[in-house]
Design a protein around this nucleic acid. Structure first.
Lengths: 102, 102
DNA sequence: ATTATACATCAATATATCTTGATATATAAG
DNA sequence: CTTATATATCAAGATATATTGATGTATAAT
């Protein structure tokens, strides 16, 4: 029950749904990619990514001073069905700019 | 997005997950069934049932002074997959007593 | 008509969650 | 060693959600 609630709670937020969809469409991104794509301050992005990670949707890989977030693999059927449902929502995808690595 | 968030928000609560599972296992129930099965006050039950109904999981049918809640049919694949996931959580099912109709 | 039952809704309070700005840590560059 | 960059975390305030008791409405029984 606790894991289920944590999973559901992690997607019970418009910002996180958009971030999750962005990563699902773009693949691996770092925190600053999302910062610039969504024009959000860093602490806010970091917090939401942590919640999505704790919800079982994302994994992190640290390389140098960057933290790269991507969809966890393998992903169970239930979380995959949530990703698919979100992909059908027809959300506007912000442009990805690689500002932090230019 | 709004509909998706309302759906997710409706199951982002331990009480509602238990109620939804109870109805999924028992079929049609009235408000007082849940009142007695879960030992909750009526206003609380009524509120949670409304949220689950607005979340697209339940339908109501009024007969006399009773309101009978059951799983909405037909149910879309996404909500069905949520019901199935909840059914796998191995929640304790409270006994159903038909106090209000004895 | 009056009373009882089943349910819905409101207002107040309690609790949880989100956002922000400040601060901390860790890595890399000068 | 000092400074800059990328990220994480904390504390305070703002916002949202849950619980309760009171009240409202509709139906049925006496």
């Amino acid at each position: 029950m606790d894991i289920f609630l944590k999973t559901i709670g992690s997607i019970n937020d418009e910002t996180r749904i958009k971030i999750l969809n962005f990563i699902n469409q773009n693949g691996e991104v770092c925190v600053c990619d999302i910062e610039s794509a969504f024009n959000m301050i860093q602490s806010r992005v970091s917090r939401h990514l942590k919640i999505l990670k704790d919800g079982g949707f994302l994994k992190v890989e640290r390389r140098g001073r960057w933290a790269f977030y991507s969809i966890r693999t393998p992903l169970d059927n239930f979380r995959q069905s949530i990703l698919d449902e979100i992909a059908c929502l027809d959300l506007e995808l912000p442009n990805r700019d690689f500002k932090c690595r230019k």
